[in-house]
Structures are given as C-alpha cells and as structure tokens.
Design a protein around this nucleic acid. Sequence first.
RNA 1: CGGAGCGUGGCGCAGUUUGGUAGCGCACCUGUUUUGGGAACAGGGGGUCGAAGGUUCAAAUCCUUUCGCUCCGACCA
Length: 567
Amino acid sequence: MRMSKLYLPTLKEEPAEAEIISHKLMLRAGLMRNHASGIYSYLPLGYKVIQKIEKIIRRHMDDSDAQEVLLPILQSSEIWKESKRWDRFGPLMIKFKDRKNREFCLGPTHEEVVTDLLRDEIRSYKDLPLNLYQIQTKVRDEIRPRFGVMRGREFTMKDAYSLDRDDEGLDESYQAMYNAYTNIFVDCGLETRAVEADTGAMGGKDSHEFMVLAESGEDKIAFCTNCEYAANIEKAESLVEKRTVNKEDKLEKIHTPGAATIKELEKFFDLPGEDMIKSVAYQADGEAVLALVRGDDELNEIKLANYLDVDNLEPASEEDIITHFKSSPGFIGPIGSKGVRIIADQRIENMESGITGANEKNYHYRGAKVGRDFEVETYLDLRLVREGDSCPSCSGKLEIKSGIEVGHIFKLGTKYSESMGASYLDENGRDKPVVMGSYGIGVTRLVAAAIEQNHDDYGICWPLAIAPYQIIILQLGNDDAVIDKANEIYQQLESAGLEVLVDDRKERAGVKFNDADLIGIPLRLTVGSRSLEAGVVEAKVRATGQELNFELSSVVKETTELLAKIK
RNA sequence: CGGAGCGUGGCGCAGUUUGGUAGCGCACCUGUUUUGGGAACAGGGGGUCGAAGGUUCAAAUCCUUUCGCUCCGACCA
C-alpha cells in the first residue's frame, strides 16, 4: 500500500478525550475515531489489525471443530423472557419496539439466540456435540463506557457456544476451547494468564478468564508466587488461619461518641481492626441482610451475592438502616437484630469475641460472642483476598495485579437448555437437556490490550502477527534514484507475499520517521540517497531498535530472513 | 444515578473572574528556499464560541434550560 493513498490521519498532539495509553495511541496512530461515548469507527489501519486477529481466531476455532455462523443482532424479547434475562440484564440492553409494537433488543450476547436456533434442530444424541461460533458486533448500554475501546457500548466479540450430551462432553469441549484460547493469544503475540473467574450473570459453574496483565486493567487478579493458582479477585480465596483473638468474655455496652468507622474505633479502643466485627448492611431483592467480616477485612460482595442467589444486591441506604434494620448508620451490628438475615465470614467463627455496633447511635458492644450474644445463618468465605494472604492450594503468598480480560470461557451446564427447552433423546430414548458452554473473546478490546502491552514513548510496537503491515519502506527525498529504488523494493517484497507499506508521501524525513514509529510497523526499511550511495538499505526493528544494513542485491532475502526472527 | 471538570476553525488550547463584536500553536492552501528524526519565510482560507431561551445599547463572557464529552464512585460477564 502506498501511504500517499492511505487514509491515515495521525495526530501529533495528545487527544484530550483519551486517558490511557492504548486509547491515546489508537487515536493518534489513526486506527479509529470516536463517534459517540463508547462507539467508534475503525479506519483502514485499525480495521486491518482487527482482521488479522479475526483470522488467527478463525484458524484456531476451525481447528477445534467449531463452525462459524452469523447470528442476528436484532433480537426478539420473547427468548430473553424465556431465559429470565430480559429483566436481569435490564438497562444493559438497548431495548425498543418495532412499528408493530413488538419488543426487541440489540444483542448484548447470543446464548438465547443459539439455544432458540438449535432447540428445534437437535433431536438425537447423534447430533451432538456441536460448537458454533461467530464474530459479531455486540451492543451493551454500559453504565460508564471508558478507556476507548476497552469498555465500549459497541464492540466486536468472537463468541462460541458448545452443546454436549453430558458433563463429560462439556468438560472436553471446554478443555478444547481453553487450549484454543491459549494458542490464539500466543499467536497474537500476547502474554496472557488464565485465571479462575466468577460466572456472574452468565450462570454456570466453572469459568476461566484470560487476562493481559496491564496497569490500566479494570480487573484485579490474585496470583500465587509459588504455584499455578490464579483467580480473579471476585473469586479468589485464601487460607483461613486458625487463630483466636480478643478474649473478652463478658458483653459490655460502651459509649463510643463519634466513632463510627473501623478506623475511628481502632483509635478509640486502641485495638487493631482484627478485634472488631464489621457489619455491612444490604438490601437483597428487598430482604435485609447483614454481612459480618472481621474489622480488618473487606467484604467481597460477589461472594455474598452468589450465596444469596439474588438479582439485586444493594448496599442499604442510611434510611434503610434506620427503618428496616432498626439501627443507626455507623453503629449497626448483629446483636438484637430482628428480621435480618445475618451471614458471617468464616474468620468470624475463629473470633472468641469482638467489638461490634450496638444498633444505637454512639454505642458499641465489646466482648460480643457468636452463639451467646447473637446467631448467624451460616459461615462462608465472604472476604476479599489481600496481597500477602496465603494461597489456598499451596499456602504460598498471594500477589495482586491488574489485568485486562480479553477472553472468558464458561461451563453453562443446562441453565439455558432447561429454561428454553433444548433437549435431545439419548441412546435409551430418554429426553435430556443439552449441556452447554459459552466462550468469548473481546476482539476490539484485544487490540487495545495488545497496545497496552506493546508500546514505547514513540508509539505502538505491534507484534508481527497482528501488525497492520509487516514492513514499512521510508522513501526519503525526491531523487528519482531513491523513488525508483523504493518502488522496486516495494514491488519485490509484495511479490514475495509480504505486507508492505511504502511511505511515498512528499513529507520531510522527520515526519516519516515519526509516523513510522507511531503506527508501529514491526520492520522499517529506509531508502535514501545516503544509503543508496553506500549500496544498502537500512533496516530497523521497531520493537527492539535493532539496526542492520541490507545489500541492495539481496534485500528480499535478508528481509524475509529477518522477519522470520521477529515476533 | 451521585460527585467533579470540560464544550471556542480538523487537533491542542487562551480569552469568561471585570460584557465592547474572537485569538495562539499545529494542521490545511499558494509561492520561494530547504530536504536523513515532526523545516524557514511570505501570502491565504476556514469558527452562528455545543444548542435553545432570557438580561443588556451590546453576550464566548451574565442568568435559565438543555444536549454532549471526560474523570471518580455506584454499577457492570
């Protein structure tokens, strides 16, 4: 491609709308432009990168016997009501009515469509297993789109759906996808880590996320420094140490004016947070729930929501605390609570006693004991893991890092097949629900993640596999000899099947060098009168800065050889 | 949805406090000289100052309403 003809609007200055590096560079390097909040147009260079990624994805999906289809974006409300997600997804979906007043949404995902499509087709165990995938635009009315393409309202996703006869079949399909994903990300030149994940609104049991480690990531991941354990912090667990603290044995009500937070209580009593019982009040589908964690711990709401199995878990407002919990904000506690479900973290069980709110303004109890002074419904893991916690599988130390979720795989089980009636007849003629899995890759998010992982002060450093072009030839100056030579090399390389961009614009050298760095083409060849006099073209590897001179007579051969070594 | 900030040529910004008829840098067009890391000089084009309403002799500037964008939080596969 000739740059004189390429639509490539690069920006010299930082766009004001962008905050993180990948977003800035995607705008500056002319990959995309903003249309509205969280909605983008992809320009030629950006779309090339997307197509490269899609090609890699297709190859690995096809290799694992998945078959590509294309499902509708416009989806009828009926199937969503069947799966009970019309309300569950709620405002995340763009919903509207057609001229005949029928309800539709723009598909935020396609489980319902796939299930609907196949429930009438799958008759026999002989039709299974099956894995269908598509690369499609998804529409989600995110509450807060941000970081450019990282959390957009419209984005490209590869989603796949497996259908199996039973759990063993699902395990196999899941493992095949796990392997395919691992290979896809390696082939894209990305470093990812698979972590255990919560299943969220998708439902189901096992789930893994594929994370690109990056400061700007919206997710937190806990890793063991000693073994392979890695989990999203939403799901991560740690060993519960067996130790007892605070041996007060009588319950005592204490006037604690102005001490409402754990920090203030630590000061007031001159005791550490681990001697206190933190009580967090929630409204769970209208039911009052009090979650207890140790004072120095943070509550993991996802763990609580999973246990309660509710659609709506919201922190109780100050008003709720007064009316529903009959308490006082800042002084809430489990003692004397009526009509409130009390659920405790397992570490509370190890506490001999603790300091907790007295449900009365400016009062706390000291020496509160579970079983004697109050009862709990159950003990379970409710706490957010912290850096330095002990690993649940090997008791090594946990470390916490930020990551960008680029892939997510789920074992859905029979959630959709049962609610929507997708079943088959087994060998014995018995009707059984299809066992499903679902597998997603955020294609456009992957572009941003790749940039987060591969850039420097001058611009993007594309991994070769997903670079929009492999080679950029800089034609410096307007000497006929230079123009002819640049042209000749361009044509030779293209004939050799390489992807080449030639900067034939009437720009000064500095502009060309800077644009080349910005758009991040992996290999740069410079043709100018200086190098021609020396009988060479200069080669420079974008990512490493490595520089070489190629003899004019063997440019194609040497370029091909060098490319083979670049990642 | 709560909090904060911002909307002025394509991009980045000043001007708003204290109303007086719009400016800078980059980009763009023409010409000359340049030409290996974002050239210099000269000339030139382009903006109903997000929108609507109001106050005023006069509004980018003051008031009201509204729309959009960004950040923090809530929320969110």
